[in-house]
Design a protein around this nucleic acid. Structure first.
Length: 264
DNA sequence: ATGCCTTCTGCAAGAAGA
């Protein structure tokens, strides 16, 4: 089974590219982030014509997560236990569309869009850390109560865990994505027992390049998209790819797909 | 060439991304 994660940065803008890639790459299950639409706005037909069923969760033009799959999906879950809400001061607090899960051939997958954080002083940064902490609590319970379950967290973590995961660490002084609390929040998943199954095979390389300032031609990117697998999941991984070519061409997403193969 | 940012809403310009 070939599974992948991709922050698509608007599925309505990117649908032709994404469906074309799904078919070319022979991917069975794709976890998407930043679909930027409600379910009723999702471009289902192009996916269905290509043989992929969609399970989508989106509240408005922001965030939004989904699966495209040609394997039956079971036990769909929206959000996780204790997931924090967010809203600007004086605005209603909302459980944003940043997490969806499904089980495919007995493999449980999460499509996750971790909050950005904005700046170290912003309430969004506190929200990001709480969101990750609550997620880790859930993961710890799954590992403890279902040690044989193959599962993976897939998505845009908005954290660059190592210095070499950004092109020039000096440009990130005082910025989000590289702060110590964020990196500790990322490490926590590995301490619970998850493995970065892509890093094990591809130690360096970016998954995101900003649209601005020629970041891609200069190869000034960030590694912020990950697949973190439970031990039973990691043992089944046979191959990994960061599909850097997908950053090229007309109207690409600023993120590229990250792919793993797991034994059936 | 891999090229100087892009998406959303809604009609202008602001919010958001990282």
């Amino acid at each position: 089974m070939r599974i992948a994660t991709h922050n698509v940065n608007s599925i309505r803008t990117r649908v032709d590219r994404v469906v074309d890639w799904l078919q070319r790459s022979n991917t069975d299950v794709l976890a998407m982030q930043e679909i930027k639409c409600k379910p009723e706005q999702f471009p289902y037909k192009q996916f269905e014509d290509a043989g992929y069923a969609i399970t989508a969760h989106g509240l408005d033009q922001w965030n939004g997560v989904a699966f495209a799959s040609r394997i039956a999906i079971e036990d769909v879950e929206i959000g996780f236990s204790g997931m924090p809400s967010f809203g600007k001061e004086g605005k209603p607090q909302v459980e944003e569309a940043r997490a969806i899960a499904g089980t495919f051939n007995g493999v449980r997958l999460w499509s996750l869009y971790v909050p950005n954080g904005r700046t170290l002083e912003d309430p969004h940064y506190t929200y990001k850390l709480e969101w990750l902490d609550r997620l880790a609590s859930n993961v710890a319970e799954w590992v403890e109560h279902e040690p044989d379950l193959p599962f993976a967290l897939m998505g845009d973590f908005n954290i660059a865990p190592f210095e070499y995961d950004v092109w020039n660490i000096d440009d990130f002084a005082g910025a989000t994505h590289v702060s110590e609390p964020e990196r500790q929040a990322f490490e926590a998943f590995e301490q619970i027992g998850l493995r970065d199954v892509v890093r094990e095979r591809i130690p360096t390389g970016y998954t995101y390049w900003d649209y601005q300032q020629l970041r891609f031609p200069r190869d000034e990117g960030m590694r912020i998209d990950f697949i973190l697998g439970s031990e039973p999941f990691a043992e089944r991984v046979s191959n990994a790819v960061i599909d850097r070519n997908e950053r090229k061409g007309e109207a690409p997403s600023d993120h590229v797909p990250v792919v793993v193969d797991i034994a059936d």
